[in-house]
Design a protein around this nucleic acid. Structure first.
Lengths: 98, 98
DNA sequence: TGATCATATGAATAAATGTTCATATATTTG
DNA sequence: CAAATATATGAACATTTATTCATATGATCA
């Protein structure tokens, strides 16, 4: 793989990482790895995060392909598009970078 | 683990992720995972990145515990503090998030 | 239909990150 | 010591990301 392709790949990886490099967003990922799906109110409650702020995070993560969303009546249930993403957390732990 | 501890952990993980969520920085990590150590000129050459900009990135990654640095004469050789960090790249690939 | 609940959106602002440029520091070499 | 090379630093500015607030939308229910 040539250097230009490599750089492009790294930019793509950075795009994903940026979408999750935030305490609140990682908490969402961690919760959704344990609960399959949760609605916004449940997340607001768990995370003690303001509704509107969380909504912005969720909307953006969804737009970037991290989350799925399904509406059921008044509620919107979010889930991980790819459960494996939580491995990044395990990875950081095992790297004891953090 | 209670929710507050969890949030703290996620903030720490986010701190590490933020330090690497950038195309240039990921390229540095990728290169250093293959080369053990490289000096700044070599990295500038490989990455076609301006010296001063790269230096800022390197200094910051070092400050945040991602990189090591050792001076040998006029040169500064950078290396990964923990080689395992490159697994985050594998992880993203395998999640085909990117 | 109007009230209420759940969630999203947009605009304004704040804070963090990235980039550039000029210049400083450290090391070697003539 | 002066010049050259390698790297770092600081300030200014640009761009991105996070946060807040007010309000909109969509769904249910009386």
């Amino acid at each position: 793989m040539d250097q230009n392709t490599e750089i492009k790949h790294m930019e793509e990886a950075a795009y994903v990482l940026k979408a999750i490099s935030n305490g609140t967003r990682l908490c969402v990922i961690s919760l959704l790895s344990k609960h399959d799906e949760l609605n916004v109110s449940q997340l607001v409650e768990e995370l003690k995060c303001e509704q509107s702020l969380l909504s912005h995070h969720l909307t953006d993560m969804r737009a970037k392909g991290i989350l799925n969303c399904r509406r059921d009546g008044k509620n919107c249930y979010y889930s991980l598009k790819n459960k494996q993403i939580v491995q990044i957390l395990d990875c950081i732990r095992s790297c004891n970078c953090a």
